[in-house]
Write a protein that binds this DNA or RNA. Sequence first.
DNA 1: TTCCAAGTCTCATCAATTGAGACGAACTCA
DNA 2: TGAGTTCGTCTCAATTGATGAGACTTGGAA
Lengths: 247, 247
Amino acid sequence: MQVLQTTAACGYRGAAVDDYMDALELSRPTIYRLLKGLREQGFLRASPIRGRYLLGYELLVLGSQAGNGSGLRDLTRPRLLSLAQRLGDSFYLFALDGFSAVCLEVQNGKYPVGSFVRATGGRVPLGVGQASIALLAYLSKQERESILAHNAQQLEHEYGISLQAINKEIDHLLQVGYARGAEGSHLPEYTGLATPILDHSGHPLGAMSCSMLKSRLSEEHKLQVLQGMRDEVVELVQQAHGLLYIE
Amino acid sequence: MQVLQTTAACGYRGAAVDDYMDALELSRPTIYRLLKGLREQGFLRASPIRGRYLLGYELLVLGSQAGNGSGLRDLTRPRLLSLAQRLGDSFYLFALDGFSAVCLEVQNGKYPVGSFVRATGGRVPLGVGQASIALLAYLSKQERESILAHNAQQLEHEYGISLQAINKEIDHLLQVGYARGAEGSHLPEYTGLATPILDHSGHPLGAMSCSMLKSRLSEEHKLQVLQGMRDEVVELVQQAHGLLYIE
DNA sequence: TTCCAAGTCTCATCAATTGAGACGAACTCA
DNA sequence: TGAGTTCGTCTCAATTGATGAGACTTGGAA
């Protein structure tokens, strides 16, 4: 697995044997043996540049399945698309994973925007961003607290977000039905909105999220975005009955 | 890697230990050891169902990189999107991989359609479908012939496609600038169009493809689709200068 | 051609994985 | 609540199968 990670770390251009040698504490022959095996299985492929290796297409299949737990991604994708097209902002699907939220899907609209998460597969510690709030709010108290306790330091130091701010936003969400990001000291020019996606028992399956420049968030636009996301989520959950394998 | 494949094969619900036992000729303790390791690295995760395992989110990251060789996918994605929205059909990005074409990206429009490829990561033997034609046509003669020789049997038996039909379509493409699928005896109700994406030296980086019900392919619609794909590819290639790491 | 890096091979060593089976933990169902 | 079942871990001894050193071959580039 480290070979794959190393390959990924080398990006577009591919990884050379020396990259693996530096990263892996293995001998040259062993590295070649691993590379060969992984290539044969389709997990690596040769780069057009001789002597470099790229991630193989077998990972595509696994990756697209990995992000589609319970079929949620397939159901959400076209909806994010349509939101992004209609409203112009960037829309995201997040899911819980341990102490972080993982981005399962992004659709950028006409006015895409930087965010803490760059792309599919990106993570933020739970607590950062509006999607985190939407996910945390529907966990049991113990779960939520243990996650927040775990992340507290990092949230404070790296993102300038306090637990109070987070709890405040959770309350806000539970009152008004949508999530804003907790105020932190970073990326102050951006903002966003999120809606939880809950199963029939009230557990969070994921969150639909939207990020934009603060300057775009007029009251009117905010209502449009919220209404749009809510409508899509409601339809999604209806559609899910019988389609989502919740259990 | 077989553990991952097995997990994938079990789909949404996740794989149980017995699935691994059946698939892998390993003892129970060993399987648990592997599962543990893969979980720790994020390549597997626990399913909500006790005792079952799902693909982990780490694969998302690898998968999205794997499909983005040279940055092609990122450049193409929004264009497929816009085509799918404007024209209503399903649009695909394909790349070469050995003896097959791999689907790197799909965007379904309002009138999605079955095709030989179901989703991201899907493969068809080169020769099947319009994208294959677009890719094959720009390979060297030897490469093309060796690939076709390799696939000939399968093409004939499984898809009812003859080498003549393929060569005819390649000629057609070289004359008129777009590819149709070679006539086979399967899926006769569907049809499609494809455009190659070439680098500056004329090598095929990929192919943009579109599939639809035959009944939708009026002459007018055909022209629209072709024009749309061509425009997008031209822009894409321009945009690529300096962005695509061809080498 | 010459050169150099990429990739393979051989072989002896031995560390690390393996399986059997017992054990503990956790969930289910009565 | 308690019996039963399945999930997951642990121990330990046997041995396999991976490992590294270094020589060798291949193949592209100048």
